[in-house]
């Protein structure tokens, strides 16, 4: 009996940027730095995709200013994107809630595939929403794929509304980070710190018990270098982790992320520009 004509497929991994393109992003070269960071991250993301052929890494981007719209509407294989990325332009307000609704529609099944890997959503913003963010978030989080997604947030500068970004990515850490914040607002990455998934003191753990994952905080970029670093991390390390998911124990207090997040790279303490 011949092998049947069934559609076997590598599991798609949808990576979606939600980029703040409000007028404030024009200040101090933030928009330019964001475009450059995304461009620079694409070869690394393509390499990660090549190393994980069982996942089809597909990139999309939403820009939001006075209105939200798909900047890159078609799920695009990352290797096709490197020469085709069109720069984002900044002007207008901050329709972040509307952007979340756009993404919510894209995460419905269909068009989302039944067998997709948990999507990666990266929200980048330098300010506060000017529309109904809560409504957008509510609509987004009604979608199972949004609940399953790895949701990251990058605050560009210190004017970003961290509370809003925290709502997007989920519950904040239960405990304070073990060390003080760097000028970029990040805990230095390390085996215990875990960057975006800060861990509590090892002394509280029983032998053999993995480090507790106590939630994540928005990444806070205060200059072009750190912004590029976080985007690079999201598009390579996180994509790599999401490309080869391991099962996680359901109903476990150990689990707060759908994909175990890799550590952030060591943070370069640079000048606070934004």
């Amino acid at each position: 009996m011949a092998f049947p004509d069934v559609q076997l497929s590598r599991r798609p991994l949808h990576f979606i940027y939600l980029c703040d393109c409000s007028g404030s992003m024009q200040a101090n070269g933030k928009m330019q730095a964001l475009n450059q960071a995304i461009r620079q991250s694409l070869p690394g993301m393509a390499e990660v995709a090549r190393q994980n052929p069982e996942a089809r890494v597909l990139v999309r981007a939403v820009s939001f200013a006075s209105q939200a719209r798909w900047h890159l509407a078609e799920p695009t294989p990352v290797d096709q994107l490197q020469s085709n990325w069109v720069d984002l332009q900044a002007e207008g307000l901050t329709a972040m809630g509307e952007a979340l609704k756009l993404v919510a529609a894209a995460l419905r099944t269909p068009p989302m595939e039944q067998r997709a890997l948990p999507p990666v959503l990266v929200l980048i913003s330098d300010g506060a929403p000017t529309d109904d963010f809560e409504d957008g978030l509510r609509i987004l989080m009604r979608e199972p794929w949004a609940q399953k997604a790895v949701r990251l947030a990058i605050a560009v500068g210190h004017d970003a509304d961290l509370e809003i970004l925290q709502q997007f990515i989920g519950p904040a850490p239960h405990r304070a980070a073990p060390t003080g914040l760097t000028p970029t607002g990040l805990t230095p990455a390390g085996p215990a710190a875990g960057g975006a998934a800060a861990a509590g003191p090892a002394a509280d753990r029983r032998p053999g018990e993995p480090a507790p994952r106590t939630g994540r905080r928005p990444l806070q970029a205060s200059n072009a270098t750190s912004l590029a670093q976080y985007i690079q991390w999201a598009s390579t390390a996180v994509v790599g982790a999401a490309s080869m998911p391991v099962s996680q124990v359901g109903a476990s207090s150990q689990m707060d992320t759908n994909v175990p997040l890799p550590d952030l790279p060591p943070t370069v303490i640079g000048q606070v520009v934004w």
């Binding site: 794929w145 391991v246 099962s247 996680q248 124990v249 359901g250 109903a251 476990s252 759908n258």
Partner: peptide
């Protein structure tokens, strides 16, 4: 479950 790869396990 809200997790894409979560499953029940004998280790629970």
């Amino acid at each position: 479950s809200a997790s894409g790869e979560a499953t029940f396990s004998l280790c629970l």
